[in-house]
Design a protein around this nucleic acid. Structure first.
Lengths: 347, 347
DNA sequence: ATCAATCGAGCAAGCGTTTGCTCAATTCTA
DNA sequence: TAGAATTGAGCAAACGCTTGCTCGATTGAT
């Protein structure tokens, strides 16, 4: 069987409680005893049973991760691995490990979360998306379990701690950038309308247009699924317009890849015929052809900060109110958006 | 506090043990009692405490995942998210959840694994890579803890259960494909030599050349890191040769992206000047420019099967000897390798 | 030298489940 | 109708660890 604390105790000639306190490095134990116990642990190859420990002190050292339903699909978007990297780095630094459940439907995800929480399997939860009317967030909030959202939550955001980038601002900047390059017919392709990120980016886009005195055209705003296939369809529709856009703001790199390959297939050149900019600056943005101009949002940092906030909450060193952390972004200009051309025909 | 089994017992007017048996759906409990208890559980919103259960039970329902050290880097390669999808799907189907530790150095990873195993935190482990002289596998094997390797293990592979694709064969086929397209100067760019996958693919490549009566040239075999940066350097060196290759077999899609963008920068056309084929058929292979010809290895299936094997082992319905599962592959031809040209100048 | 204060370590009661045994009540057999 | 067999449920002992309390031994103050 496993080596228990009792075995160590016997071997070191002390009581189990003493061993326990040695592990916790309690000041109540003399240095000499500590050393004796430690060497016994070493010698026997002792490792504490985590379940027993959690049971006794009601703390697991782990963090629950909630992916959007159909997590499994989602993992195809490099956003998630990257945010996972951030989370895992910080978690590891603080001795936490990660616990994932997945589910196909929203219900499954919710019940997974309930199990984590009620089953005391984790000390806190990170929600990796933000969607309107989300049951998971509702539940978490109502049970007052420590949690952090990546992305801007809906509803009473002020009471929820979250980590986000300023999607509104970055979309505004990006659109402005296109305007400055001479574009006047600028379209927007976004993902699911239920997602906060889509809404924010669309609003930023619209604001920039208005600031430039360009009317916002409904037929320039397309919606598609986050993955690349969706992008293709949206593009075809936009280009069928009688005054097709000369530039598109795409809400996600992966979709932008779809857009680009569709455009190529249609025989259009990028950026000469259509300029493309997008968001996230995912790893492959740099290696697409042409390389994507994209907003670097520091996904890693998002995950890292979220974990940081969560750990604060768990150790209740966090304030009782919701905290928000905005991770800075910047535009990475590559070929897909083109250069400013002097004397570009305008309007 | 939490709602425990005792609360439910009291509420339903039975003993805790009865509640426990209801949860386990034991036949020793009458239908009537079961219903009464179930409705009590429902009413009180009871969820079993997982740690208590594991402690009593000596089974967690979770699977440990071991990523290569610097997991965090690794997550950038879409291979991992994808294999994770497979694992998570199967795990979820069988009521297992996933537990990840990460570490930067090999030592850290090992100690994470030891903690999982000795701490009885997981029921089994999946190792997501296969490297020569790997401490983790050594440890796992020696403790006889259930585990499965994704990739072909080194050493006495026959006693280890693993899931893999036939890298040797696929590399041979791919090289043959290039040969059939008329190429005679074919290079190979692989990742770390310590990895089984690199070795196998290189060997397959070499075999194909020999079968075609083409001598294997050392200077046509380059090594690079798995990620794209490495690819760039390898390419420059190859093209500096006095008889530069007209085709390259690249051991990984991500590296291939690097190769392609380097070639483009150097003003070479793909596939006209240099043909490129690679492996894994990762999501973006389809959307690169030009789209990559790549070997579909069904990464998802790899993860899925690995989990399957592990669950078998855990429920000891598995044979005591190592089992191997080979997931089939096939070549997906896209633009990067070019078409056969009649009368292609040969040699 | 006496008593209080301090220190180091052990006792034992949890933490929430599971499970082998026991036992009362019911049903069946002869 | 008595006794055996069966059924349904409870008792209590684990599982391995933590922690409030107790207590003997040492130290220090007077």
């Amino acid at each position: 069987m496993q080596i228990t604390i009792k075995d160590v105790a016997k071997h070191a000639n002390v009581a189990p409680s003493t061993v326990s306190r040695v592990i916790a490095n309690s000041p109540r134990i003399s240095q000499k005893t500590k050393e004796r116990v430690r060497s016994s642990m070493e010698e026997l190859g002792y490792h504490p049973n985590i379940h027993a420990r959690s049971l006794a002190n009601r703390s697991t050292q782990s963090i629950g991760l909630v992916m959007p339903s159909a997590a499994t699909k989602t993992l195809q978007n490099p956003f998630f691995p990257e945010v996972l990297r951030g989370i895992s780095t910080k978690a590891h630094q603080n001795g936490y490990s990660l616990y994932m459940t997945t589910g196909v439907t929203e219900e499954e995800v919710l019940s997974g979360v309930i199990e984590m929480v009620q089953g005391r399997r984790v000390d806190g939860v990170i929600v990796l998306y933000s969607r309107e009317d989300d049951k998971v967030v509702q539940y978490l909030r109502q049970t007052k379990f420590p949690f952090v959202v990546v992305g801007k939550p809906f509803g009473d955001a002020s009471s929820i701690t979250y980590v986000d980038t300023d999607n509104y601002l970055s979309a505004r900047e990006v659109t402005k950038h296109l305007y400055n390059l001479g574009h006047r017919c600028i379209a927007f392709i976004g993902g699911s309308d239920k997602l906060a990120v889509t809404q924010d980016r669309r609003n930023g886009y619209a604001t920039a247009l208005m600031e430039a005195g360009i009317p916002v055209r409904e037929d320039y705003i397309a919606r598609a699924e986050f993955m690349t296939k969706g992008g293709a369809k949206a593009v075809r529709e936009l280009l069928r317009l009688e005054e097709p856009p000369t530039a598109v703001v795409v809400s996600d790199d992966m979709m932008a890849l779809g857009v680009i390959s569709t455009l190529s297939e249609m025989g259009l050149r990028i950026p000469e015929d259509v300029a493309v900019v997008s968001f996230n600056n995912v790893y492959i943005a740099e290696h697409s052809n042409p390389p994507l101009t994209s907003v670097e949002i520091n996904i890693f940092g998002l995950g890292f900060e979220a974990t940081n906030c969560l750990i604060e909450q768990i150790g209740d060193s966090a304030p009782p109110y919701g905290k928000r952390v905005i991770v800075p972004h910047y535009l990475v200009v590559r070929q897909s958006c083109g250069q400013k051309k002097a004397g570009q025909p305008v309007e």
